[in-house]
């Protein structure tokens, strides 16, 4: 990644486990994340001006340990404190908890936002147990923009938390991925089968059945999202139609076509749509849909330009 984009990324850290901006920012809240590889551009791909300042990376689907996380926090700290954006996974959370304790011993103020946007992974009454998936991208963007705008740690954290609360996601898979160390597919699925609601590591979903036309699959996804948080006339949203790795972008646009029609019919306005591979699961075939419901602040922060190979400004 650094070889391809040397103006954007640099590798750093005692064990070369952090990716960071080429130059440290000045006088702003730091924003960092961390997580396993296998989801490019999540996590480390979103390092860039107006996004993450640094990111700790682990092995495929494995949390980095606390040490690179602490290095990322130290790099990002300019005296204004550091916000850590954490996907809701046991290892990531525990290691970031320890990182923040360590940072506080070094007199660096820290805050955490846990992203848990996957509606298929737990019901609304247990929303705090949901996994973090493609909604991470929105939270990175909003936090990065808030920090760039000069908000302090509390305000940056509040904006990121608001973005996280406003995101709902659900995925559909047609084939599994294979974790290199395991050497075999994480789950078995027939050629003519799909699974709704699986996680970005191949965690089991909520429904499995025969392959259906794209409009029907999109309707199922949107129905799940709508049941969780109904949208109506006059609502403004940003949507991310995300490919999981092995699905042609052409098909993602077919999903978007159906989604656009449904939103139009419901009187919901789409702002800053994104269609492409933003949060992948290696060679898994499938897609996810993330909807972030906007208010004035989120819409403004979303529109702030960011500089990163994986983010397109509109």
């Amino acid at each position: 990644m650094c070889l391809a984009y040397p103006d954007v990324y640099a590798v750093d850290g005692e064990t070369a486990r952090i990716l960071r901006r080429t130059r440290a920012a000045k006088g702003k809240v730091g924003v960092v994340s961390g997580g396993g590889f296998g989801h490019i551009p999540v996590f480390a791909g979103y390092v860039g001006d107006g996004l993450l300042d640094a990111c700790a990376v682990g092995d495929v689907f494995a949390s980095p340990d606390m040490n690179p996380m602490l290095e990322a926090v130290r790099f990002a700290d300019t005296g204004a404190g550091v916000l850590c954006i954490v996907g809701n996974y046991g290892g990531d959370r525990m290691n970031f908890d320890m990182t923040c304790e360590m940072a506080e011993m070094e007199d660096i103020a820290t805050a955490r936002v846990i992203v848990s946007d996957d509606v298929a992974s737990a019901g609304p009454d247990e929303a705090e147990k949901r996994r973090g998936v493609a909604g991470l991208v929105y939270v990175f963007k909003i936090a990065g923009a808030a920090a760039k705008a000069g908000m302090d740690l509390a305000a940056t954290t509040a904006a990121a938390q608001k973005a996280s609360n406003a995101c709902r996601s659900i995925g559909v898979a047609m084939s599994s991925c294979t974790v290199p160390q395991a050497g075999k597919p994480t789950f078995e699925i027939g050629d003519m089968e799909i699974e709704i609601g699986m996680g970005i590591h191949g965690e089991p979903g909520v429904w499995r059945g025969p392959l259906q036309p794209v409009d029907a699959v999109t309707d199922t996804l949107l129905d799940h999202l709508d049941r969780d948080r109904p949208l109506g006339q006059g609502d403004r949203v940003s949507v991310l139609v995300n490919g999981l790795g092995a699905t042609p972008v052409e098909e993602l646009f077919l999903i978007y076509r159906r989604l656009h029609k449904r939103m139009s019919n419901a009187g919901v306005e789409i702002v800053h749509p994104m269609v492409g591979n933003y949060a992948t699961s290696m060679e898994m075939a499938g897609a996810s849909v993330t909807i972030m419901k906007l208010d004035g602040e989120l819409e403004q922060l979303l529109s702030v330009p960011a500089d990163c190979p994986f983010w397109r400004n509109l």
Binding site: A62, G91, N95
Partner: peptide, 13 residues
């Protein structure tokens, strides 16, 4: 003691 904790986490997850 924090340094010891760090050393621990470097070698064991």
């Amino acid at each position: 003691l924090f340094g010891c904790a760090k050393a621990m986490t470097q070698v064991s997850g």
